[in-house]
């Protein structure tokens, strides 16, 4: 796609309330990150030693999965703009499946940690690890519920090129879930390792 065609596309037809919600949510995560970094600076050795125990491979796989799911959401919106509801539903379902894989992956990661005796109370790094990734996971679950509703409604023919706000709003939310992970992954898994 050339630059000019990107510029021609209008901004997503998202209602301002959704954007305010997303902005507030991102501010909350920004606060999580700032407190994490401040506490980390106070005691970097514990953080770096604990960080080494994380499974970077699983984290990287989850990053790719979420990026893929965001791409599916983009394709779903594009399909709907062409009034291709069938394709839109397939892409939404694909994004939903990516979310499911993300959750399974995260469950494996958590259970491996718990089996090693690492819990939320082990030290401050793992407190942040469990809480930040846990709250993000709750966002993934919420996003999957939204994707499921959008999928069902698309199958019923509720949306079209002229009635796209719901799909675009849900899409923007899902992109935020992805974006947050893009920050979480380096901050928790890699920073200064």
């Amino acid at each position: 796609m050339s630059v000019s065609t990107i510029e021609k596309e209008r901004a997503p037809a998202v209602e301002e309330g959704i954007l305010i919600f997303i902005f507030a949510d991102m501010c909350m995560f920004a606060l999580f990150f700032i407190t994490y970094l401040m506490e980390r600076n106070a005691d970097p050795t514990v953080y770096i030693a604990s960080q080494a125990k994380l499974n970077q491979t699983l984290g990287a796989i989850n990053t790719l999965i979420l990026l893929l799911s965001s791409w599916f959401v983009v394709l779903a919106v594009k399909a709907l703009k062409r009034n291709a509801q069938q394709a839109c539903a397939v892409f939404l379902a694909s994004a939903f499946c990516c979310g499911a894989v993300f959750i399974v992956n995260k469950a494996m990661e958590y259970s491996a940690k718990i089996q090693d005796g690492v819990t939320i109370l082990s030290n401050d790094f793992f407190m942040f690890y469990y809480i930040i990734t846990g709250i993000h996971l709750a966002h993934v679950v919420g996003g999957m519920v939204i994707l499921l509703v959008l999928f069902i409604n698309t199958r019923r023919g509720k949306y079209s090129a002229n009635n796209i706000a719901a799909v675009e709003s849900g899409g923007v939310y899902w992109h935020m879930v992805d974006l947050l992970w893009i920050f979480i992954f380096p901050l928790i898994y890699f920073l200064g390792a």
Partner: peptide, 24 residues
């Protein structure tokens, strides 16, 4: 929308049942 978000912002407070130090 701000109301819904504010209502959900209480969720981290559940961690007060376990943690004695730190931001939670």
């Amino acid at each position: 929308y701000v109301t819904i978000w504010c209502g959900l912002s209480f969720l981290p407070a559940s961690l007060t049942g376990v943690l004695k130090t730190g931001p939670f």
